[in-house]
Each structure stands twice: as structure tokens, then as C-alpha cells.
Nucleic acid binder design. Structure first.
Lengths: 243, 243
DNA sequence: CAAAAAAATTGATGATCGTCAAATCGCCCA
DNA sequence: TGGGCGATTTGACGATCATCAATTTTTTTG
């Protein structure tokens, strides 16, 4: 029975193995107890929003299960997928720390389980344990690093190269390796979302995928991707090795 | 004499008017005294580096005078200008807070005066005044907002539109308005840097500038830019006003 | 299960952009 | 003041990409 509970993230903070890998790792047992009592966990269906851009921030979210898309809207009104979040990740800490409204929306890409922690609880924990604040600083800083890296990437690379980069990142999280070294992955995203992640139109992405198949780099069937020789993917993004 | 010192940022933290507009605004007089005694101020010539990417972080920098370029290097080895910093801005707080090496380089674009504050002094101040930590969180958060906004911009806009956006931002900081409503600005940047800011080649930027002149939107002479009708610039970036 | 809606693909076309090369301009330094 | 070197501009060309439109495929929904 105890074993069963361990396999169910979101039902109990003490049992949740994820907390050793995120912001909450610095909390004492007493503080984890406070967190566990205040936390409200609920499930989301595929496509269901967790919060929307512009809403007031009443607390933060901690993903127990599923994949979550963080989006913004561009000047023309099109959604742009900025980031994917996974179990153990904390969402919405920014508006909370600074008292701002949500600056992006979050949507469950598949069936998910997400815990909500009330603003006042977080503030109580921050007051009890100063190390928690530093954890959040680390987190914002890490996000800033990612954003800057993407900015530099987008400045130079072609859409095809950016997509190959994206595939490798997704493969890391969603792929599995067969005995012969080939990789398979179930994409958590629509083509439109994939296209918006690399700043291209979905028609363009469709053509890029077609060309990747022609070149024998990968095979796409619906949301399933087969990569027979991962080395050919890596070879694509190899810098032109100068000086 | 007292008046003279007020116009010399960098010689004394108490007299420095900039500190009311940045992170240090939360410090008490005693803490400002500590800051002032620990601070080391020096001048930089145009083009001189303040710190380089990959170096260990020994402290943070506070700009007293001048314009500073924050750069990274892309996969091909080309420098990419990420951000411009101005008097009152604090540089290098990230590596300091997290104990990492510098993740970007900083270069004085013109004659500048920059104060250096030792790591241990900053940590002493952070320990004395918890509000200072929150100020740095705000700062990282603000940078992250900027980076995300740029990511969304780059995803959709043409190079010409991105450059017009950039011109408007630069005009805000470096431009001045004549009595007839026309604007003039002295660019602090080379064409190459301008091009890297919008993720384009310098040849492409050169042609964009040529086209802007043809269209009568602006006139460029060396690093001087004349905008006779600022409304025509604003008109360019107006979204296609749908729904 | 069938109709309707949304997503994805494909084709054609023009605009934008990067690349290579050459010429010109401007600035720093001897 | 005159080289010399880097920055900038210009030209020619091909590659990439966005756009519009039509079609096919997949998913949703009654």
C-alpha cells in the first residue's frame, strides 16, 4: 500500500520523490508538512488551461504528472510556445514573487496532475526558510539563461537547424532507445506548436519535415518520430568547425 | 564645489543620484556608507572590456557614466549583442548570486565610468538587508521579461520591422527632439552590432537602412540618424489591426 | 457512425535574406 | 600627411521562407 502511494505523485508531499529535485528540496520536514497541508492538487485534461495570461497571481503550481506548455501571444495574436514544463517543475513563481499578473499562459498538453500552493503559504515558507528564496532566484536565473541561449540561436540558425535542435531536446525527454540504437519518440505537441517554437509557419515546418524524411534523417508518422541514426541528427547541428 | 560633485557620478555613493533608481534604493544610510567605502571606481575607454565571458565572478559592476554592451557568442563564433546597459544599471549580478562564471561579456561603448563592488561586500549587504535580495530578483525577472519579449518578436517579425523597433528603443534613450518635432540621435553602436541585435547580417542591415532612406522614413549619416516624421516610424510597427 | 471542424500537407509564387566578392569609405597610427 | 586596416556599402545570385489557396488527413462532436 505504501508502495502504491509512492507511485502516485501529487497525493502527498512527503511521498513525492520529485521534491528532491526542485525548489522544495531545501525545506525541513516541518515545512514540507506545511506545504503538504496547504497544497491543493487537481487533474487536468489534455488541452485544459492551468492559468491564462493577464490573470492575477494567487499562487504557484507544481507539476506532479504530465507535460505543460507555457505560451505567450505575439503582436499578430498568434500563440507562441516558449517553454515546456515537466513533473517537478514549478510554474507561476514570477508573478507571485513580484505581485504581478501572469505574463504567460500554461496549458496541460496531456492528462496532467498539478498541485496549487497558495500565495500566503509560499510567503510563509519564504519567511521561515530564506534558502527557498535563493532557490527561486536560481530558477529565474536558469530560465533567463535558456531564453538568452534561444535568442542567440534564433539570431543565426536556419529553421531546419533550429528544428533539429528542438528534436534533440524533445528526444532527450520524450524519446526511448531501441536495442539497435534507433530512437522513437511520441511528440507531445502539434505541428503548429512545434513551428511556433522555432519561429516558423506551420507550412514551412511541414516542408522541413518532408525534407528530413527525404534525407533519411528521421521518419514522421502523426506524432511519432523515428530516428534510425541519431548520429545524423547530431551531424546536422555540428558547427562548421572553424578556427 | 558641492554642486560640482553632484554632477560627477561614481565619486561618492551618497551623492550619486542614480542610486535612487536602482537596486541600492533600499539601502539605509549606514549601508550606503559601507557600499561607498568598498566600491572601486574606474574609467574605461571606448571599446574597452569590463569583463569577459567565462571569467570567474568576483563582484558586480554599477555603471556611473556611459553605455555598456552585453554580448554573447553564437555557435559560429560571431558576437551577438544581447543588451545595452546605462548609468544606474548593475552588471554581473547573476554569476555573483549563483557563484557561476560570467555568462556574457561587457564592453564600454564609449568613455565610461563604472564602479566595482566586491563579492564579499555584496554578500554582507544582502545579509544585512533582505530587501536587497528581492531587488535583485526583480532585476533578473525584468531581464527575463525582456528576453521573452524579444523571443516572441524574433519569431514573427521581419528584419526591417525588428530594426524599426530597435530604432524606436534607441531613440528613446539616445535621441533628442527638435522644435519641429523631428528627431535626431547619435547611435552608440556600429552597424555590425546593430545587425547582430536583430539577428541579421550586416549587409542585410545596410540594405534595410538604404530602403528606409528611399522610403523617406529616416536619414542615416555615419552614426547620426535623422527622423523627420516619427509617426512614420510608429506606423511601420503598427500591428495589422485584426479582430 | 457520420457530419463538421480543425490540423496538416502540397503547390505555386514572390519577397526576403544570406553568401560571396569587389569596391569604397572612414579612422587610427606611424 | 599617407598607409593600412577594418567597417560599410553595393552588386549578383541562390537559398530559404512567407503567403495564399486548394486539398487531404485527422480529430472532434452530435
Amino acid at each position: 500500500m505504501v508502495e502504491r502511494r509512492r507511485t502516485m505523485p501529487g497525493v502527498n508531499c512527503f511521498e513525492c520523490q520529485l521534491r528532491y529535485r526542485n525548489e522544495w528540496s531545501v525545506l525541513t520536514d516541518e515545512e514540507v508538512g506545511l506545504l503538504g497541508r496547504a497544497r491543493k492538487c487537481r487533474t487536468y485534461r489534455a488541452g485544459e488551461p492551468i492559468f491564462l495570461i493577464g490573470e492575477p497571481s494567487h499562487g504557484i503550481y507544481c507539476i506532479a504528472l504530465g507535460t505543460v506548455a507555457i505560451r505567450k501571444i505575439d503582436a499578430a495574436g498568434n500563440p507562441v510556445l516558449l517553454h515546456l514544463a515537466y513533473p517537478g517543475d514549478t510554474l507561476g513563481y514570477r508573478g507571485l514573487l513580484l505581485g504581478e499578473n501572469r505574463c504567460s499562459s500554461a496549458e496541460a498538453l496531456g492528462p496532467s496532475k498539478v498541485c496549487f500552493i497558495d500565495k500566503s503559504t509560499v510567503q510563509a515558507l519564504l519567511a521561515k526558510n530564506p534558502a527557498l528564496g535563493l532557490q527561486f532566484v536560481r530558477r529565474v536565473d536558469s530560465d533567463l539563461n535558456d531564453a538568452h541561449a534561444k535568442l542567440v540561436q534564433n539570431a543565426t540558425l536556419s529553421n531546419r537547424t533550429k528544428f533539429v535542435h528542438l528534436l534533440l531536446v524533445l528526444m532527450n525527454r520524450h524519446g526511448c532507445t531501441a536495442t539497435d540504437g534507433s530512437h522513437v519518440m511520441e511528440l507531445p505537441l502539434s505541428r503548429r506548436d512545434l513551428a511556433s517554437m522555432i519561429g516558423a509557419r506551420h507550412e514551412t515546418l511541414s516542408r522541413i519535415i518532408g525534407r528530413l524524411e527525404e534525407d533519411g534523417v528521421a521518419r514522421f508518422s502523426g506524432r511519432t518520430v523515428f530516428v534510425t541514426r541519431p548520429s545524423s541528427l547530431l551531424h546536422e547541428i555540428k558547427p562548421p568547425l572553424l578556427d
